[in-house]
Design a protein around this nucleic acid. Structure first.
Lengths: 226, 226
DNA sequence: CGGTGGCGTTAGGGGCCCGTCAAGCCCGGG
DNA sequence: CCCGGGCTTGACGGGCCCCTAACGCCACCG
């Protein structure tokens, strides 16, 4: 899966972590000193470094600084020291996370997952799919194979509200209040008109809506596919 | 600098954090409930979310999950609960970091710096092409075959904001706020005038803009070619 | 079978938003 | 003092969006 370097001078922690990580499919490199760590980091490409600050040779913060000189690999620092100044120094030197010993293995593994998750580019924008349409909430645009689907501001607000509550029923009152304002909670005509426009633009068969569903007498619901 | 949302139901922490962050040049949004947090996150683009789990309405982990449904913004979780299970749940829901209350402000600020640092790749191609024009963001210059295109400071700020968010819609409010300042969020005339000037200088056919696109009633968008 | 309430659909007009132009203002340099 | 570039302000025309209202449809029920 990923390649992880564990730097610690306690053999038992090294062993325990190695077993846990390997069991999850990661490749594990081990080092017991700062010099060894830097040597390995320069030799093999790494996805994550777990670094104990209490090393026999080099000060851990210096190791972080040296690594940051040429590498952007995420670094999780472990340390027996709990003072704020130590944490600030390590984080500002370039570390991504700081855990104080003793720590729970579950928490460390969770922080490792978090670090690896955000390290993987995952460049794809967070996009909601709706049949053949892609809804990009960040860019505020809807596209499909034929190009861009043009939505008016009101149409977009309505769609956004429903899509941000996938599978959940949104009451007419709630829709009217957030899209048109608190003074319009009885103007249910607006809903009918704009839902129709959205369905005409986005549904394959607007007469038989599959994604923008009506719950009669209650409200509307965005139904994500499968 | 960066735009940060702080979610907490303790007014004092909200105030203290707001002051510290604003003093460092960040824009700060505040919310006291999960619903308010989600509403703000949907309205303004954010660079970081600081989220207290002990909210009066929605469970904090649910807020994390909801945000992750459409947003990749880094999330730092604050909580009074120290159990490993809580940390693992929040981190696996998509949080980037987890701090237990009470915490030191210096450490929190250091973790905020770390989160913002790794979020901004900053090595984006400093030169963007826009038809026959080359936009050098680092040198703040626009050139084409005929030489340099002279832009006024305001024109450049506007262009830079749009180009730094390629494909994304930038609201009129946001443009006015970042280019002219918070007191000018209603002066939409400025936008019309300066967009026209930019298009006259940069677009092949200023009457039919291809790169600096208007989204009526919402804002503007820089459309990179293919 | 006729009434009723809720929903879908359509079309048109008024008004808002945007693009454009030009004149006035501010300020620093010649 | 004048001058020029950049910024602000206002006016105007056109296009598009929002609202509105009317009608048809369906389900339900007396």
């Amino acid at each position: 899966m990923s390649r992880i370097l564990v730097v610690d001078d306690e053999p038992q922690l090294l062993r325990a972590l190695g077993i846990s990580l390997r069991a999850r499919g990661h490749g594990v490199e081990a080092a017991a000193s700062g010099a060894a760590a830097l040597e390995i980091a320069g030799r093999v490409p790494l996805d994550l470094v777990i670094l104990d600050l209490g090393l026999p040779d080099i000060d851990g913060v210096e190791v972080v600084r040296a690594l940051r000189g040429w590498s952007a690999t995420p670094i999780i620092v472990l340390s027996a020291r709990d003072a704020q100044a130590d944490k600030v120094a390590a984080l500002d030197a370039g570390a991504d996370d700081y855990m104080t010993k003793p720590f729970g293995m579950d928490e460390l593994l969770a922080r490792i997952r978090a670090a690896l998750r955000r390290a993987t580019p995952e460049l794809e924008a967070p996009v909601v799919t709706m049949g053949r349409n892609n809804i990009d909430l960040a860019a505020k645009r809807v596209t499909n194979a034929e190009g861009e689907v043009r939505l008016t501001p009101t149409e977009w607000q309505l769609l956004e509200l429903l899509v941000r509550n996938p599978g959940k029923l949104v009451s007419q009152r709630q829709i009217l209040q957030t899209v048109w304002g608190p003074a319009y909670t009885t103007e249910t005509n607006y809903l009918r008109v704009y839902l129709a426009q959205l369905r005409r633009k986005l549904e394959d068969d607007p007469a038989r809506p599959r994604y923008l569903v009506t719950e009669s007498g209650m409200g509307y619901r965005f139904e994500p596919d499968t």
